[in-house]
Amino acid sequence: MEVRTIKVFTTVDNINLHTQVVDMSMTYGQQFGPTYLDGADVTKIKPHNSHEGKTFYVLPNDDTLRVEAFEYYHTTDPSFLGRYMSALNHTKKWKYPQVNGLTSIKWADNNCYLATALLTLQQIELKFNPPALQDAYYRARAGEAANFCALILAYCNKTVGELGDVRETMSYLFQHANLDSCKRVLNVVCKTCGQQQTTLKGVEAVMYMGTLSYEQFKKGVQIPCTCGKQATKYLVQQESPFVMMSAPPAQYELKHGTFTCASEYTGNYQCGHYKHITSKETLYCIDGALLTKSSEYKGPITDVFYKENSYTTTIK
């Protein structure tokens, strides 16, 4: 009895394709271990004539594949690729409408935090270190965002349907971005203890939790000093293409032309909904596939993004 075979390709990165001759009487799992086709788990399936010449994702289970996976995804987590594939199996079914010149995501599976993050990423200057993220990001900007969303979920250790947080998501993504040249110098002034300067680099240099107003941050924000008295913390120097200011959701007025974009969060910790506000020729609110415009805006804002380049204080 002759062994019926077909020729397929296996890959971990969709760049390096490895030619395989597979036995049609055995499952993919018996031949390769966990195997995925377009995100779908085909591990328990036997090869079919229609699979001839198709590319299958496999887990990096030998040295060659491990090197290829690390170079593309910059992670050695053995569960990463499987999590990416199972997320992709959902995100490829989502709709990605162009809204006001940006790629958004039609609401499904509690994905409003991903839509808000995706919209924000198209408006701030950011370059990702893992080629996987950078490639998928370019495709997302062009309207094909399924891979990018699935990668975000995998890097953030999230599953489809789980509630997510924009600030946490951005923080994970910033860790995989090139923020080497970003720098922030802060000064804390206390009447009792004097003053202390701190220099922050990388992710810490672009994120701040405690106030939404970048102007206020430049002037000074009140913080408790270690001595128990009130101290003032203010920005001395900022070198970065953008800054992200966050605070627990509270009524906040966004003035046209003073910011790049913002995240609105309605609801409580267990259950809520994100919308995205962007400042173009007027203010726009993007909620999944829905767009509304207004000249002014007041609502429960939790993150505001500002364009920056270089700032030095005039406070002496």
Score class of each variant (00 low, 15 high):
V3M: 14
T5E: 13
T5C: 14
K7G: 14
T11W: 07
V12M: 14
N16K: 06
S25F: 15
T27C: 15
Q30R: 15
Q30G: 12
F32P: 04
G33M: 06
P34F: 05
L37P: 05
K44Y: 13
I45N: 12
S50P: 12
S50V: 13
H51Q: 10
H51L: 04
T55M: 09
F56E: 05
V58E: 05
V58N: 08
V67T: 15
H74W: 00
P78G: 05
R83C: 06
S86I: 12
A87M: 02
L88Y: 13
L88V: 03
H90E: 07
K93T: 13
K95Y: 11
Q98T: 10
V99T: 13
N100S: 14
L102A: 05
K106Q: 15
D109H: 08
N110I: 07
C112M: 06
Y113A: 08
L114D: 06
T116N: 09
T120D: 04
Q122H: 05
Q123M: 05
N129M: 08
P131G: 06
P131M: 04
D135V: 09
R141I: 14
C149F: 06
A150V: 05
L153F: 05
Y155K: 02
K158E: 03
K158G: 04
V160I: 10
V160S: 02
V160M: 02
G161K: 06
L163P: 10
L163V: 05
Y172K: 15
L173C: 04
Q175I: 03
L179W: 05
V188E: 06
V189T: 11
C190K: 01
G194C: 14
Q196E: 10
Q196L: 08
Q196W: 14
T198L: 14
T198K: 12
E204T: 01
M207C: 10
M207P: 05
G210E: 01
T211P: 01
Q216I: 06
Q216Y: 03
K219T: 12
T226K: 15
C227E: 04
G228T: 03
A231I: 03
A231T: 04
K233Q: 13
Y234V: 09
V236N: 02
F242C: 01
M245P: 00
P248G: 01
Q251W: 10
H256S: 09
T258M: 09
F259K: 02
C261S: 01
S263K: 01
G267A: 00
C271N: 13
H273E: 08
H276R: 00
E281W: 07
T282S: 11
T282N: 05
Y284E: 10
A289M: 08
S295A: 12
S295W: 13
K298V: 15
G299I: 03
P300N: 12
P300D: 11
I301L: 00
T302Q: 02
Y306H: 01
N309C: 14
S310C: 08
T312L: 13
